[in-house]
Amino acid sequence: MSLSARVRIPTEARAGEVIEIRTLVSHPMETGFRVDSFGRRVPRKILTRFSCHYDGREIVSMDLRPGIAANPYVAFRFVADVSGAIELRWEGDEGEVLIERSHLEVIRA
C-alpha cells in the first residue's frame, strides 16, 4: 500500500504539559530475510528513520530496523514549552519521504 500516515497530535497544550504524539504508517517493512514460494529472497524494503521536529528542534529521531513490525507504530511524549510547528518525517531505504505537519499552540497560564 502506498505510504500514508495516521497521526494523533494535540493542537493545544498548557505550558509545561506533557503531551503524546501517536503515529501509524502504512509500510510493509519487508525484512529482506524472507523467501517467496519459489525460494527467492524477497528484497529488503523498510523505513529506516523517523524523526520529529518541534519548533525547529529535532527532539526525537529513531532508527527503524527490520525488527519493527509492518505498518510501524510509534508513540512518544514531550513537554510542551513553546508554540511552534511540529513536523513528523519518515524516510525509507528507497529514498521515499513522508512528512506530516501540524502546529502546537501553547497556552501560558
Binding site: 500500500m1 501509524l24 502504512s26 509492518a70
Partner: peptide, 12 residues
C-alpha cells in the same frame, strides 16, 4: 481506533 492497523485501509 487509532492504532488498529486496519484503520489505515479505512483512511485509504
Amino acid at each position: 481506533d487509532f492504532a488498529n492497523p486496519g484503520m489505515l485501509w479505512v483512511d485509504r
